[in-house]
Write a protein that binds this DNA or RNA. Structure first.
Length: 202
DNA sequence: CATTTGATGTTCT
DNA sequence: GAACATCAAATGC
């Protein structure tokens, strides 16, 4: 309860890759409708930059109905539907008109594990519960209806528990599933702690 | 084990 | 109509 939510000033800095690395170890929380609170430690992120990154939906300052959310000031959610099935959760960063975002790809469950199991239709808590961008959103109850929600709100937010991984050996690798982006697909903008098992496969 | 395929809907050409 | 920041189940070794 006493852990502070990250404030807009955290998200509105210019360097999206720095923020992506700092988000590792923070705690993503959701409290949807009247369901129990669910939360987990962020273990995997990917940075997307709206300028000079072909893998980003809003590359080259292209504005569409879908990407308009990313052009808002940092500190809100950007949630969109992928492959018609999966709701992918991103954190919008940078200031207004700078379309940067960070995809949250995996978490390690903390609170509300039973609720997550119920939402996912699973029996056991293991990495297949929340390791993967489509999985964690389902476990946390995140849908596109929360697109554009402020992360200072009481539905979705991120707290700083000052967890700090025992050996914060952060690994930077190529992003997943963005081969279509040519040269930009090779940018090492995917981050995760080497010792964590709660990381998506690939 | 590895690899393939079906589900599913929004966006953009 | 094709592509897509994916997952799970089915098939082939």
């Amino acid at each position: 309860m006493s852990n502070p939510k990250l404030s807009p000033s955290f998200y509105q800095r210019q360097d999206v890759t720095s923020i992506a690395q700092e988000l590792i170890g923070k705690v993503l929380c959701t409290q949807i409708d009247n369901d129990p609170l669910t939360s987990g430690i962020i273990t995997e992120t990917e940075a997307y930059c709206g300028r000079g990154d072909k893998a980003c939906h809003a590359n080259n300052d292209t504005r569409t109905d879908r990407t308009e959310t990313m052009y808002q000031a940092g500190g809100i959610s950007y949630i969109y539907l992928c492959y018609g099935i999966h709701h992918l959760f991103n954190v919008v960063t940078n200031v207004e008109d700078k379309a940067d975002a960070i995809l949250i790809r995996a978490i390690e469950p903390l609170d509300g594990k039973n609720k997550m199991l119920q939402r996912r239709g699973k029996q056991d808590v293991n990495p297949s519960l929340t390791a993967g961008p489509g999985r964690l959103t389902q476990a946390l109850g995140i849908t596109t209806s929360f697109d554009g929600t402020a992360l200072t709100d009481n539905s979705i937010w991120i707290e700083d528990w000052e967890i700090g991984f025992s050996a914060p050996s952060l690994v930077a690798t190529e992003r997943v599933g963005v081969d279509y982006a040519g040269e930009d697909a090779k940018l090492p903008w995917r981050f995760y702690p080497q010792e964590s098992k709660w990381v998506s496969q690939k």
